[in-house]
Amino acid sequence: MNNIILRIAWLSFNEGIRQRTIYGVSAFGLIMAAAAYTFIPFIGFDVCRVVIDFMLMAVSAGCLMIIFFLCLPGLIGDIRDQTVYFVLSCPVSREEYILGRFFGFTMILFIALVILDVPALLMVKLYMMKYPGYVPLHFEWHKLLLASFFRFYAALVFLSFVFLVWSIMESGVLVSIAAIIAYLIGQNINTVKNIAMASKTMGIAAKKLIVFASWIFPNLGYFNLNTYAVYGVKLPEYYMVKLLVYGLSYMSIAIVITMFLFKRRDL
């Protein structure tokens, strides 16, 4: 990889560290673990399933918070505060800036994943030791780790879409709103598509619109492997490989378009 991209990535990563992201994420992980320890026994009998879901949710929420409170303000701030000029001064190209930023944020998200996984795994282990009779029948640790990894992977796919939106819109508020809407759509687009396709009353135009949207928005619901992690529900053949390919191609396309649009943007 290009040395400049790595330097920008490192710069973005350091920016996250300077903003005490690691402390924030660690504190969030600990609070979630404490909440899991305190409240889950009151929720139901199936405590091990609840704790697994809860801790996976913490991983997702942690990654989302980093995107919304660190990555997005960082990108918007670069343009608003004109700090982008410091980075873009010769010989750094705009493509290198985009790639560097993306890889830098990826590093932060990965660190967050590792930090959040530690209390998550400890809490699951603790509950399994405390309530051995409630360990889900087909539970396996590697499945839990894979589910957690794919939540991080989904966050990366979503981040690439945030980059794309940011390259189109000028206003920071609009970018934030668009990102939130895109997240909600991304989580449900596949379900909506299935419902629409099965519907006999919905018009063809509406169906086509939904199908079109499913190609544009990241299908984040695909990356939710909760039932696989908790109950060992069998996934379709090569599902994870397909997920990896889908995610990687989506990110590549989004980042390439972002680079293309950003190159033409009037800064």
Partner: peptide, 17 residues
């Protein structure tokens, strides 16, 4: 389901409680 997305299991826990 449309609002909760990946947090649906947690919402399920809340309704159960």
């Amino acid at each position: 389901k449309a609002v909760c997305g990946e947090f649906a299991p947690l919402v399920s826990d809340v309704f159960f409680a």
